[in-house]
Design a protein around this nucleic acid. Structure first.
Length: 338
DNA sequence: CGTCCACGTCTAC
DNA sequence: TAGACCTGGACGG
Protein backbone atom coordinates (compact mmCIF):
# COMPACT_ATOMS: atom_id res chain seq x y z
CA UNK A 1 0.00 0.00 0.00
CA UNK A 2 2.13 2.74 1.22
CA UNK A 3 4.24 5.14 -0.84
CA UNK A 4 3.04 8.47 -2.15
CA UNK A 5 1.16 7.06 -5.16
CA UNK A 6 -0.74 4.51 -3.09
CA UNK A 7 -1.69 7.13 -0.51
CA UNK A 8 -3.06 9.29 -3.29
CA UNK A 9 -4.90 6.38 -4.89
CA UNK A 10 -6.38 5.65 -1.47
CA UNK A 11 -7.76 9.19 -1.32
CA UNK A 12 -9.29 8.76 -4.79
CA UNK A 13 -10.79 5.47 -3.66
CA UNK A 14 -12.40 7.04 -0.61
CA UNK A 15 -13.84 9.91 -2.65
CA UNK A 16 -15.22 7.53 -5.26
CA UNK A 17 -16.75 5.04 -2.84
CA UNK A 18 -18.13 7.65 -0.43
CA UNK A 19 -19.55 9.96 -3.08
CA UNK A 20 -23.22 10.48 -2.21
CA UNK A 21 -22.95 8.21 0.85
CA UNK A 22 -24.46 9.30 4.14
CA UNK A 23 -22.64 8.14 7.23
CA UNK A 24 -24.01 8.30 10.74
CA UNK A 25 -23.40 7.43 14.36
CA UNK A 26 -20.09 6.87 16.06
CA UNK A 27 -16.64 6.13 14.68
CA UNK A 28 -15.46 2.74 15.98
CA UNK A 29 -11.88 1.84 16.86
CA UNK A 30 -10.73 -1.77 17.24
CA UNK A 31 -9.87 -2.95 20.75
CA UNK A 32 -6.32 -3.83 19.87
CA UNK A 33 -5.36 -0.52 18.27
CA UNK A 34 -3.28 1.87 20.35
CA UNK A 35 -4.27 4.85 18.23
CA UNK A 36 -6.58 7.50 19.70
CA UNK A 37 -10.35 7.18 19.81
CA UNK A 38 -12.13 9.40 17.32
CA UNK A 39 -14.66 11.38 19.33
CA UNK A 40 -17.06 12.17 16.52
CA UNK A 41 -20.75 11.35 16.66
CA UNK A 42 -23.16 12.71 14.12
CA UNK A 43 -26.56 11.75 12.83
CA UNK A 44 -25.63 12.38 9.20
CA UNK A 45 -22.25 13.19 7.73
CA UNK A 46 -20.18 12.90 4.56
CA UNK A 47 -16.61 11.68 4.10
CA UNK A 48 -14.05 13.11 1.68
CA UNK A 49 -10.30 12.61 1.39
CA UNK A 50 -7.15 14.38 0.23
CA UNK A 51 -3.52 13.29 0.17
CA UNK A 52 -0.15 14.95 0.61
CA UNK A 53 3.03 12.92 0.22
CA UNK A 54 2.71 9.92 2.49
CA UNK A 55 -0.35 11.15 4.39
CA UNK A 56 -4.11 11.01 3.78
CA UNK A 57 -6.60 13.34 5.41
CA UNK A 58 -10.23 12.35 5.85
CA UNK A 59 -12.76 15.11 6.38
CA UNK A 60 -16.02 14.26 8.17
CA UNK A 61 -18.63 16.89 7.34
CA UNK A 62 -21.98 17.01 9.18
CA UNK A 63 -24.94 17.49 6.87
CA UNK A 64 -27.41 20.27 7.34
CA UNK A 65 -30.36 18.98 9.35
CA UNK A 66 -32.62 20.09 6.51
CA UNK A 67 -30.99 17.59 4.16
CA UNK A 68 -32.26 14.89 6.38
CA UNK A 69 -35.56 16.19 7.75
CA UNK A 70 -34.11 16.31 11.25
CA UNK A 71 -33.81 19.20 13.66
CA UNK A 72 -30.67 21.03 14.53
CA UNK A 73 -27.96 19.01 16.23
CA UNK A 74 -28.87 17.60 19.59
CA UNK A 75 -26.55 17.19 22.54
CA UNK A 76 -23.34 15.31 21.82
CA UNK A 77 -23.82 15.66 18.11
CA UNK A 78 -21.02 17.01 16.01
CA UNK A 79 -21.85 20.31 14.45
CA UNK A 80 -18.50 20.99 12.85
CA UNK A 81 -16.38 18.99 10.52
CA UNK A 82 -13.42 16.92 11.72
CA UNK A 83 -10.15 16.20 9.93
CA UNK A 84 -8.34 12.93 10.63
CA UNK A 85 -4.79 12.57 9.29
CA UNK A 86 -3.58 9.04 8.52
CA UNK A 87 -0.17 7.54 7.95
CA UNK A 88 -0.22 4.03 6.50
CA UNK A 89 2.91 2.44 7.92
CA UNK A 90 3.84 -0.67 5.94
CA UNK A 91 0.39 -2.12 5.41
CA UNK A 92 -2.38 0.47 5.69
CA UNK A 93 -5.24 0.95 3.23
CA UNK A 94 -8.92 1.88 3.03
CA UNK A 95 -11.75 -0.47 2.14
CA UNK A 96 -15.45 0.14 1.67
CA UNK A 97 -17.51 -3.01 2.20
CA UNK A 98 -20.71 -4.45 3.58
CA UNK A 99 -20.77 -4.94 7.31
CA UNK A 100 -20.28 -8.70 6.90
CA UNK A 101 -17.26 -8.23 4.72
CA UNK A 102 -15.28 -5.93 6.98
CA UNK A 103 -11.71 -7.21 6.67
CA UNK A 104 -9.54 -8.52 9.44
CA UNK A 105 -7.39 -5.76 10.97
CA UNK A 106 -9.95 -3.02 10.25
CA UNK A 107 -8.85 -0.70 13.05
CA UNK A 108 -11.04 2.33 12.42
CA UNK A 109 -14.57 2.09 10.97
CA UNK A 110 -17.13 4.57 9.67
CA UNK A 111 -20.70 3.28 9.21
CA UNK A 112 -23.28 4.37 6.68
CA UNK A 113 -26.92 4.94 7.59
CA UNK A 114 -28.44 2.47 5.11
CA UNK A 115 -30.48 -0.52 6.21
CA UNK A 116 -27.80 -3.09 5.60
CA UNK A 117 -25.03 -0.81 6.73
CA UNK A 118 -21.82 -0.45 4.85
CA UNK A 119 -18.46 0.42 6.32
CA UNK A 120 -15.42 2.48 5.37
CA UNK A 121 -12.51 0.79 7.16
CA UNK A 122 -8.92 1.76 7.76
CA UNK A 123 -7.22 -1.62 7.50
CA UNK A 124 -3.69 -2.07 8.78
CA UNK A 125 -2.36 -5.59 9.34
CA UNK A 126 0.91 -4.68 10.99
CA UNK A 127 -0.43 -1.63 12.86
CA UNK A 128 2.55 0.58 12.02
CA UNK A 129 0.07 3.07 10.64
CA UNK A 130 -1.55 5.79 12.71
CA UNK A 131 -4.21 8.46 12.70
CA UNK A 132 -4.68 11.76 14.46
CA UNK A 133 -8.16 13.16 15.11
CA UNK A 134 -8.30 16.91 14.46
CA UNK A 135 -4.92 16.36 12.87
CA UNK A 136 -2.92 18.45 10.44
CA UNK A 137 -0.27 17.50 7.89
CA UNK A 138 2.79 16.54 9.90
CA UNK A 139 4.78 19.79 10.19
CA UNK A 140 8.21 18.27 9.57
CA UNK A 141 7.20 16.68 6.29
CA UNK A 142 8.06 18.56 3.11
CA UNK A 143 5.79 19.46 0.18
CA UNK A 144 4.22 16.60 -1.76
CA UNK A 145 6.48 15.26 -4.51
CA UNK A 146 3.46 14.68 -6.76
CA UNK A 147 1.15 17.65 -6.21
CA UNK A 148 3.39 20.40 -4.85
CA UNK A 149 6.21 19.97 -7.31
CA UNK A 150 7.38 23.56 -7.45
CA UNK A 151 7.66 24.03 -3.71
CA UNK A 152 9.10 20.53 -3.30
CA UNK A 153 11.87 21.45 -5.73
CA UNK A 154 12.46 24.80 -4.07
CA UNK A 155 12.54 23.23 -0.62
CA UNK A 156 15.36 20.89 -1.62
CA UNK A 157 17.45 23.36 -3.60
CA UNK A 158 17.25 26.09 -0.98
CA UNK A 159 18.46 23.78 1.80
CA UNK A 160 21.44 22.04 0.21
CA UNK A 161 23.69 23.26 3.02
CA UNK A 162 21.65 21.11 5.43
CA UNK A 163 23.77 18.31 6.86
CA UNK A 164 21.01 15.94 5.75
CA UNK A 165 22.52 16.16 2.26
CA UNK A 166 25.87 14.81 3.48
CA UNK A 167 24.31 11.36 3.17
CA UNK A 168 24.09 9.08 0.11
CA UNK A 169 21.40 10.13 -2.35
CA UNK A 170 19.47 6.87 -1.87
CA UNK A 171 19.11 7.56 1.84
CA UNK A 172 18.19 11.21 1.40
CA UNK A 173 15.41 10.15 -0.97
CA UNK A 174 13.71 8.53 2.04
CA UNK A 175 13.97 11.72 4.11
CA UNK A 176 10.37 12.89 4.29
CA UNK A 177 11.40 16.39 5.26
CA UNK A 178 12.56 16.80 1.67
CA UNK A 179 10.99 13.93 -0.29
CA UNK A 180 7.51 13.54 1.15
CA UNK A 181 6.04 10.59 -0.72
CA UNK A 182 9.16 8.70 -1.81
CA UNK A 183 9.60 5.21 -0.40
CA UNK A 184 11.75 2.18 -0.94
CA UNK A 185 10.55 1.06 -4.35
CA UNK A 186 10.40 4.62 -5.73
CA UNK A 187 13.97 5.50 -4.76
CA UNK A 188 15.20 2.41 -6.58
CA UNK A 189 13.18 3.17 -9.71
CA UNK A 190 14.16 6.85 -9.79
CA UNK A 191 17.92 6.31 -9.45
CA UNK A 192 17.83 3.39 -11.87
CA UNK A 193 16.21 5.51 -14.58
CA UNK A 194 18.97 8.10 -14.28
CA UNK A 195 21.81 5.65 -13.82
CA UNK A 196 22.84 7.42 -10.64
CA UNK A 197 24.87 5.22 -8.28
CA UNK A 198 22.78 5.05 -5.10
CA UNK A 199 25.63 5.75 -2.69
CA UNK A 200 26.86 8.98 -4.21
CA UNK A 201 26.75 11.98 -1.90
CA UNK A 202 23.34 13.61 -2.28
CA UNK A 203 24.71 17.13 -2.40
CA UNK A 204 26.97 16.18 -5.31
CA UNK A 205 23.92 14.99 -7.23
CA UNK A 206 21.74 17.98 -6.38
CA UNK A 207 24.00 21.02 -6.46
CA UNK A 208 23.95 22.72 -9.80
CA UNK A 209 20.34 21.84 -10.48
CA UNK A 210 18.32 24.87 -11.42
CA UNK A 211 15.34 26.09 -9.51
CA UNK A 212 13.40 26.18 -12.73
CA UNK A 213 12.81 22.74 -14.16
CA UNK A 214 14.47 22.91 -17.58
CA UNK A 215 12.72 19.82 -18.79
CA UNK A 216 9.29 21.24 -18.52
CA UNK A 217 7.43 21.86 -21.76
CA UNK A 218 10.12 21.49 -24.34
CA UNK A 219 12.59 23.79 -22.67
CA UNK A 220 15.03 20.95 -22.74
CA UNK A 221 16.20 21.85 -26.23
CA UNK A 222 19.43 20.07 -26.99
CA UNK A 223 19.22 18.16 -23.75
CA UNK A 224 16.43 16.20 -25.34
CA UNK A 225 19.02 13.61 -26.16
CA UNK A 226 18.52 12.22 -22.71
CA UNK A 227 16.06 9.39 -22.78
CA UNK A 228 14.71 10.06 -19.34
CA UNK A 229 13.97 13.76 -19.54
CA UNK A 230 14.78 15.25 -16.21
CA UNK A 231 16.98 15.42 -13.19
CA UNK A 232 16.51 13.52 -9.95
CA UNK A 233 14.05 16.10 -8.64
CA UNK A 234 11.90 15.95 -11.73
CA UNK A 235 11.85 12.15 -11.69
CA UNK A 236 10.94 12.21 -8.01
CA UNK A 237 7.81 13.89 -9.33
CA UNK A 238 7.09 12.08 -12.61
CA UNK A 239 7.92 8.51 -11.64
CA UNK A 240 5.37 8.46 -8.77
CA UNK A 241 2.80 9.97 -11.12
CA UNK A 242 3.32 7.03 -13.48
CA UNK A 243 2.18 4.75 -10.68
CA UNK A 244 -0.87 6.91 -10.02
CA UNK A 245 -1.77 6.56 -13.69
CA UNK A 246 -1.34 2.78 -13.52
CA UNK A 247 -4.08 2.66 -10.94
CA UNK A 248 -6.52 3.72 -13.61
CA UNK A 249 -8.62 0.63 -13.14
CA UNK A 250 -9.44 2.14 -9.82
CA UNK A 251 -7.62 1.45 -6.66
CA UNK A 252 -9.61 -1.45 -5.32
CA UNK A 253 -7.59 -3.70 -3.10
CA UNK A 254 -10.27 -6.37 -3.48
CA UNK A 255 -9.99 -6.88 -7.20
CA UNK A 256 -6.68 -5.26 -7.93
CA UNK A 257 -4.17 -7.56 -9.46
CA UNK A 258 -0.61 -6.44 -9.28
CA UNK A 259 0.63 -7.62 -12.63
CA UNK A 260 0.51 -4.11 -14.10
CA UNK A 261 2.49 -2.73 -11.20
CA UNK A 262 4.98 -5.58 -11.27
CA UNK A 263 5.43 -5.10 -14.99
CA UNK A 264 6.09 -1.43 -14.36
CA UNK A 265 8.98 -2.08 -11.96
CA UNK A 266 12.35 -2.00 -13.70
CA UNK A 267 14.69 -2.39 -10.73
CA UNK A 268 13.03 -2.94 -7.35
CA UNK A 269 13.01 -6.67 -6.61
CA UNK A 270 13.76 -7.40 -10.25
CA UNK A 271 15.72 -10.51 -11.04
CA UNK A 272 19.38 -9.81 -11.74
CA UNK A 273 19.50 -6.45 -9.97
CA UNK A 274 21.87 -5.93 -7.07
CA UNK A 275 20.79 -5.09 -3.57
CA UNK A 276 22.45 -3.94 -0.38
CA UNK A 277 21.32 -2.83 3.04
CA UNK A 278 21.78 0.91 3.41
CA UNK A 279 22.98 2.60 6.62
CA UNK A 280 19.44 2.45 8.01
CA UNK A 281 19.00 -1.24 7.28
CA UNK A 282 16.72 -0.73 4.28
CA UNK A 283 17.31 -2.75 1.14
CA UNK A 284 18.52 -0.61 -1.76
CA UNK A 285 17.97 -2.13 -5.22
CA UNK A 286 20.20 -0.93 -8.04
CA UNK A 287 22.27 -1.84 -11.07
CA UNK A 288 25.93 -1.24 -11.71
CA UNK A 289 28.19 0.87 -9.52
CA UNK A 290 26.97 1.25 -5.93
CA UNK A 291 28.92 4.48 -5.48
CA UNK A 292 31.62 5.68 -3.06
CA UNK A 293 29.57 5.80 0.15
CA UNK A 294 28.29 2.22 -0.14
CA UNK A 295 28.32 -0.22 2.75
CA UNK A 296 30.54 -3.20 1.99
CA UNK A 297 28.55 -6.31 1.08
CA UNK A 298 26.72 -6.04 -2.22
CA UNK A 299 24.86 -9.09 -3.36
CA UNK A 300 23.33 -9.93 -6.66
CA UNK A 301 19.86 -11.34 -6.29
CA UNK A 302 18.87 -13.97 -8.77
CA UNK A 303 16.25 -16.59 -8.88
CA UNK A 304 17.53 -20.01 -7.94
CA UNK A 305 17.36 -21.45 -11.41
CA UNK A 306 18.24 -24.93 -12.51
CA UNK A 307 21.06 -23.50 -14.56
CA UNK A 308 23.26 -22.98 -11.58
CA UNK A 309 26.45 -22.30 -13.49
CA UNK A 310 26.25 -18.81 -12.12
CA UNK A 311 26.30 -19.83 -8.49
CA UNK A 312 29.85 -18.58 -8.36
CA UNK A 313 30.38 -14.88 -7.89
CA UNK A 314 30.48 -13.22 -4.51
CA UNK A 315 26.88 -13.79 -3.72
CA UNK A 316 25.90 -13.95 -0.11
CA UNK A 317 22.25 -14.61 -0.55
CA UNK A 318 20.88 -15.81 -3.81
CA UNK A 319 17.17 -15.94 -3.37
CA UNK A 320 15.31 -13.58 -5.56
CA UNK A 321 11.58 -14.06 -5.60
CA UNK A 322 10.68 -12.13 -8.62
CA UNK A 323 11.44 -12.40 -12.29
CA UNK A 324 11.16 -9.50 -14.63
CA UNK A 325 7.45 -9.40 -15.17
CA UNK A 326 7.54 -9.49 -18.94
CA UNK A 327 8.52 -13.06 -18.37
CA UNK A 328 6.64 -15.71 -20.26
CA UNK A 329 5.57 -17.42 -17.10
CA UNK A 330 2.15 -17.17 -15.53
CA UNK A 331 1.80 -14.19 -13.26
CA UNK A 332 2.12 -16.22 -10.12
CA UNK A 333 5.11 -14.41 -8.71
CA UNK A 334 5.28 -12.83 -5.34
CA UNK A 335 3.53 -9.50 -5.29
CA UNK A 336 3.69 -6.47 -3.11
CA UNK A 337 0.78 -6.20 -0.78
CA UNK A 338 -0.23 -2.87 -2.18
C1' DC B 1 8.25 -26.49 12.85
C1' DG B 2 11.77 -22.38 12.16
C1' DT B 3 14.13 -18.14 9.93
C1' DC B 4 13.98 -14.27 6.92
C1' DC B 5 11.73 -10.58 4.78
C1' DA B 6 8.29 -6.79 3.77
C1' DC B 7 5.73 -0.37 0.34
C1' DG B 8 7.75 3.17 7.57
C1' DT B 9 8.30 5.69 10.99
C1' DC B 10 9.52 6.53 16.17
C1' DT B 11 12.32 7.08 20.65
C1' DA B 12 15.69 5.63 23.46
C1' DC B 13 20.66 4.54 24.59
C1' DT C 1 22.57 3.72 14.97
C1' DA C 2 20.26 0.16 17.02
C1' DG C 3 16.00 -1.71 18.30
C1' DA C 4 10.89 -1.41 18.78
C1' DC C 5 6.57 -1.77 16.92
C1' DC C 6 3.44 -5.93 14.33
C1' DT C 7 1.39 -9.73 11.14
C1' DG C 8 1.93 -13.03 7.67
C1' DG C 9 3.85 -15.02 3.37
C1' DA C 10 7.77 -17.58 1.30
C1' DC C 11 10.88 -20.82 1.84
C1' DG C 12 14.04 -24.36 4.40
C1' DG C 13 14.52 -28.66 7.24
Amino acid sequence: MPEGPELHLASLYVNKMCDGMVFGGTVIKSEVSKCPEVAFTCDSYRITATSRGKEVKLTLTPMKSDDDGNRRSKGGQADQHMDIVFRFGMSGYFRFTSEEEVPKHAHLRFYTKEKPRRVLSFVDTRRFGSWQPNGTWQPDRGPCIMFEYKSFRENVLSHLSDRAFDRPICEVLLNQKYFNGIGNYLRAEILYRLNIPPFVCARDVLEGLQLEDEFENGKAKKKAIKREAGDVLRLSHTVPLEVVNLGGKGYDPEKMDYSAFEAWLRCYYVDGMKSVRDHNGRTMWFKGDPGPMAPKVVSKRRKAEKTQEETQQSETKSTARRKKSNSVEPAAGKHLGL
